[in-house]
Design a protein around this nucleic acid. Structure first.
Lengths: 197, 197
DNA sequence: ATTATCTATAGATCTATAGATAATGC
DNA sequence: ATTATCTATAGATCTATAGATAATGC
């Protein structure tokens, strides 16, 4: 049994093109998801023809798997991976599909909703910021950036909806992720205490 | 100028089928995104043939727009909409594409990563929970569920990466979302204080 | 009569392969 | 010689339309 085919080292071009392709694929998959991404898009972004791309990777599936494998949770920079998750709360628990639809839209850069956001959400956001700031000025609240407080609140709400799949694995349950209400109450209650006491 | 075509009330079948179709579309778009979803999938989920679906909606685009319009941020249950967002931090700020790729995978129910999560991430998660619990037992930390503390941390990290598009609109800036480090430091510092003081 | 559904299919797009041609490295 | 790229295209899938047929509501 000869150990035929000593695994030749990849050429410089191999290395460069594979890297370029993976980089382009990351761009495209990240925006459009697996099924929405096309090999043409990826090849163009990598500066190659589509058949030439397939000279380096056997197919779309292999490209995607290669990228996901690089996100190995047991990999070296642990925090790099542990940082990949989110939430759900009241409404998010009851409307997970709406939450995901929205998340998908935002992941794509909000191509259709940006005007909507600007026109409708922005004023509400600014108003809320003002209210929170007035609480801070009155000493009722620790002095933190109101904008990021709101983002943190939203994030907490969204997380459990969008990342239900991951949370169910981590909590060892088939049931929908339990509401995190008690936790979040504690979280924001603590946060609301002025720094002094 | 006769006001021709008095807008006849939609039939019972119209109402039922349009509702079914939108419900099915919500399912499919939420999982696969706009480009990844197919009219066949949606029609099948709605219990109709694909051409019949197109009898009720002019095309894929119209279906999607109809759903997004229902997410009107100026709509009635304000919280229902305000709850639709998330975050970014250190690594997420520097690796937004990886973050989105992961988010897309999780949004689809982690079809390829679930085993990975179970085998690699779960043990780390359990270990971290144990450490946090020991802090609580030692009175160094407010008594909150360690699992949800970790989720909140992850959510904070992820949010700014995945929802950059929305955050940029709300913060009125073209630059990438500014790191929320100062805010999150305050957040978790406050959280770490035992309830007593 | 009007509304709803079906069959059939055109045309576009997408993945993947075959086979020829060009570039590179001994 | 080996490696890399190109042209051409088969076959699958997907959106959308045309036109016939069936079901429904006066």
């Amino acid at each position: 049994m000869p150990d035929d085919a000593p695994p030749k080292a990849p050429s410089r071009i191999q290395l460069r093109n594979r890297r370029r392709i993976l980089d382009a694929a990351l761009d495209v998959f990240a925006v459009h998801g697996y099924r929405g991404a096309t090999l043409d898009q990826i090849a163009a972004a990598a500066g190659l023809s589509q058949p030439n791309l397939l000279y380096y990777f056997a197919g779309k599936e292999e490209l995607h798997v290669t990228l996901l494998d690089q996100l190995d949770p047991s990999g070296d920079p642990l925090e790099e991976i542990l940082a990949y998750v989110q939430r759900k709360l009241d409404m998010a628990r009851d409307l997970p599909r709406e939450s995901r639809l929205f998340a998908n839209e935002i992941l794509q850069g909000a191509p259709r909703m940006a005007p909507h956001l600007e026109a409708d959400l922005k004023p509400l956001f600014d108003e809320k910021c003002g209210i929170i700031q007035s609480w801070i000025d009155a000493g009722k609240l620790a002095p933190i950036d109101p904008r990021h407080l709101i983002f943190a609140n939203w994030a907490a709400t969204q997380h459990y909806a969008d990342f239900g799949a991951q949370i169910r694995v981590l909590l060892d349950t088939d049931a929908p992720a339990p509401g995190a209400d008690p936790f979040l109450q504690t979280l924001f209650t603590n946060l609301l205490k002025p720094a002094g006491r």
